[in-house]
C-alpha cells in the first residue's frame, strides 16, 4: 500500500509535482501515466525517500520509506536502469545491495535466474545492453522479496519478448498480493498490464480510476453511419447537442445521438443504411485527450 498525500515538489519557482494525492492498492497492477515531464519520476523518487517533498507526505504501509528498518523488504524499486557501476559484475552489484540487509547470496542467485541473466552474471555490467540493464534493475528490485514494487518505465529498451516477460511478471507479482506501481508514458502498454490508473499531467492528478472507467468516461463515443443519402440524414439528425462530421469515405461521424436513435430516424425517412457502428475511442486517444492541456513539451502546429 503506497500513499501520497498533497505530495508536492518545487524546484525554485517550477512546480514538478503539485499536491498529488492518491493511493496504490495491493493485489493489482497500478499504472502511473503521464506525458514526459509530468512528474512521474520525481513522484517515485519521493515515494522511496530519494527526493524530499517540498510539502505533503509519501508513505509505504503508513510509514515513511526511510522509517522502515528493512526497506528492501518493503519496497523494491527500479528508478533508472543504469544504476550500476560499469566496472562491477551483475552478481557483485546485487551482492553489495543484498549485504545491507543480510540477504543471503542464495537469494542473489535466485533473482539472477528469475530475470534470465545467469549466463552474463559475472560479466561487467558496463557492457550490458539496455535490455540487460533493465533486467538487472528488476532483479535488484526483487532482491528483498518486497511487498511493494515501484518500477519506472520498465519496458523501455526491451525487445518484444522482454516486454511480454515484464507484463507477465508484473501481473504475477500483483496476483501474489503485492502492490505493483509501474510508470509509463504509453497508454497502450498500460492497457495490457494495469487494472488501475493514476494519471498525472504537469504534476497534477488528472485521473485515479480503473482502466475500464477511464475509457468509458474519457472516450468520446461516436457513431459511424454509412448511407447513400448522407446529406438528407445529416440535416435530419441535426440538433442542439449533436455534432456531425464527415470523413473522406463520405461516412457521417455522429456524436450526441445513439446508434438506436439514428437507426429509427433513418427508418422513418426510409433511408438505407449500409453501416451503423459505435466508435469507441482507443485508450491511447482517450489518454491524449485527457492530457493534451497538460503536456509539458508540445509541438506548436
Amino acid at each position: 500500500m503506497l500513499e501520497a498525500s498533497a505530495l508536492t515538489k518545487r524546484y525554485g519557482d517550477k512546480t514538478a509535482v503539485d499536491h498529488l494525492t492518491f493511493s496504490v492498492r495491493p493485489g493489482i497492477v497500478t499504472g502511473f501515466l503521464g506525458p514526459n515531464g509530468a512528474g512521474k519520476s520525481t513522484t517515485m523518487r519521493m515515494l522511496i525517500g530519494l527526493d524530499l517533498p517540498t510539502e505533503g507526505r509519501a508513505t509505504v504501509r503508513g510509514r515513511s520509506y526511510a522509517d522502515h528498518p528493512a526497506p528492501l523488504h518493503e519496497v523494491g524499486a527500479m528508478l533508472q536502469a543504469r544504476a550500476v557501476h560499469p566496472g562491477r559484475s551483475a552478481r557483485d552489484h546485487l551482492r553489495t545491495l543484498a549485504a545491507t540487509h543480510g540477504i543471503p547470496s542464495r537469494r542473489v542467485d535466485e533473482v539472477i535466474d528469475l530475470v534470465g541473466l545467469r549466463s552474463v552474471a559475472t560479466r561487467r555490467a558496463g557492457g550490458f545492453s539496455l535490455g540487460m540493464a533493465q533486467r538487472l534493475g528488476v532483479a535488484a528490485a526483487l532482491l528483498g522479496d518486497p511487498a511493494t514494487l515501484i518500477l519506472d518505465e520498465p519496458v523501455n529498451g526491451l525487445d518484444p519478448e522482454g516486454v511480454l516477460w515484464i507484463r507477465t511478471l508484473l501481473k504475477r507479482l500483483a496476483a501474489e498480493g503485492r502492490t505493483v506501481f509501474v510508470s509509463s508514458h504509453l497508454m497502450s502498454e498500460m492497457a495490457l498490464t494495469a487494472e488501475h490508473l493514476v494519471i498525472i499531467g504537469r504534476g497534477r492528478l488528472l485521473a485515479d480510476c480503473s482502466v475500464a472507467d477511464f475509457t468509458r468516461s474519457a472516450a468520446k463515443n461516436t457513431v459511424r453511419a454509412r448511407t447513400p443519402d448522407a446529406e438528407l440524414l445529416r440535416t435530419r439528425l441535426a440538433g442542439p447537442d449533436v455534432t456531425i462530421t464527415g470523413d473522406d469515405t463520405g461516412d457521417l461521424i455522429v456524436s450526441g445521438r445513439t446508434a438506436e436513435q439514428i437507426g429509427r430516424i433513418a427508418a422513418g425517412l426510409g433511408i438505407v443504411l449500409y453501416q451503423l457502428t459505435d466508435q469507441v475511442a482507443s485508450l491511447e486517444e482517450a489518454f491524449m485527450e485527457q492530457t493534451k492541456d497538460a503536456t509539458e513539451y508540445q509541438a506548436v502546429a
Binding site: 523488504h73 540487509h101 522479496d145
Partner: peptide, 22 residues
C-alpha cells in the same frame, strides 16, 4: 516459484555492520 524466495527466508534489517560489509 522463483519470485517468492526459497524456504527459510531471510528477515534482515539494515545494520551498520551490514552496511560496512556492503
Amino acid at each position: 516459484d522463483f519470485v517468492t524466495p526459497s524456504p527459510a527466508a531471510f528477515h534482515g534489517r539494515v545494520t551498520q555492520t551490514r552496511v560496512l560489509h556492503s
